[in-house]
Write a protein that binds this DNA or RNA. Structure first.
Lengths: 149, 149
DNA sequence: CTAGCTGCAAAGCGTTTGCACGATG
DNA sequence: CATCGTGCAAACGCTTTGCAGCTAG
């Protein structure tokens, strides 16, 4: 896979060095299906390279955030999570009951964004939203509880 | 002002006691124009009652969150902030340059919410959103920088 | 009276930082 | 070889918790 190649180029171009730790952290982020925490990353990295320190993870994440290769998100009141930034803006629906995360198409937001800009002049950053709520399954389960019973 | 009365009733009805500390914390939240942090609350409360402890603030906030009288929000990577929950859902536009916070009408979200529900079956909690971006003034300032110069 | 609330102090946790050594380019 | 990155350990700040005394109901 040469998918890492372009990333290392970005790093190099900005005067950052390529180290094995950074490669492993990059790889963890890439192969994670979504949001992962700093300690998740550490754990994955340590499987192949046990002496990596959590501070290195944070420092690398900080660099990647600056380069807009990664976003940081606060999930509810929980820990910060990080996610590899693909080219397409995308959003997450997070069920507050079962914690299931679903992807949501960006189309839903285009009108919201333009409406806000039109009415208020505020230019919203809508490229990575996390919306909490209740997924279809849990809603059904809820209704069954309060319904028949 | 009897506006505190209904809140104390809610507390009582759920088996919680009314204490001067709680009244002061409630009052701070009510009179704050928007998001405030736990230490903001402490500071305000201590003006009239110097011996209140920060842990009491957190404990009270926790009770109020459980009763859905208050919401907790993570502002960017910053500290958690808390806000009194009025009857109307409302939203905030937060400028990432000047930190100015503007209110946004709920109308903007009704279509988004129904669209998500329709297409995915997911029922989103959209009653208190924080959208980051660039306010009109800062956008203008930005353009002047990159424009004429 | 008695449960719940409080202040205090200390622990807990994720995150950041100082430092000297080691690796990168 | 100069610089940047690293591991380690300690600091940091917000938040939580244990505890004994107090207070609201």
């Amino acid at each position: 896979m040469s998918c890492e190649a372009e990333t290392t180029t970005v790093l190099r171009d900005h005067g950052h060095r390529i180290t094995p730790q950074r490669m492993l952290i990059l790889s963890s982020l890439r192969h994670a299906a979504g949001h992962i925490s700093a300690s998740d990353i550490l754990e994955r990295v340590q499987r192949s390279y046990p002496y990596v320190d959590i501070s290195t993870v944070y420092r690398t994440l900080s660099v990647l955030k600056d380069l807009h290769l990664v976003t940081e998100t606060q999930m509810g009141g929980e820990n910060a999570t990080f996610e590899w930034l693909g080219p397409e803006p995308h959003h997450h629906l997070i069920c507050r009951k079962c914690d299931q995360v679903t992807l949501l198409d960006h189309d839903h937001f285009t009108e919201l964004a333009s409406g806000i800009l039109r009415e208020t002049g505020f230019h919203p950053d809508i490229d990575h939203f996390a919306i909490f709520g209740l997924c279809a399954e849990c809603r059904e389960a809820n209704q069954n509880e309060s319904g028949p019973a």
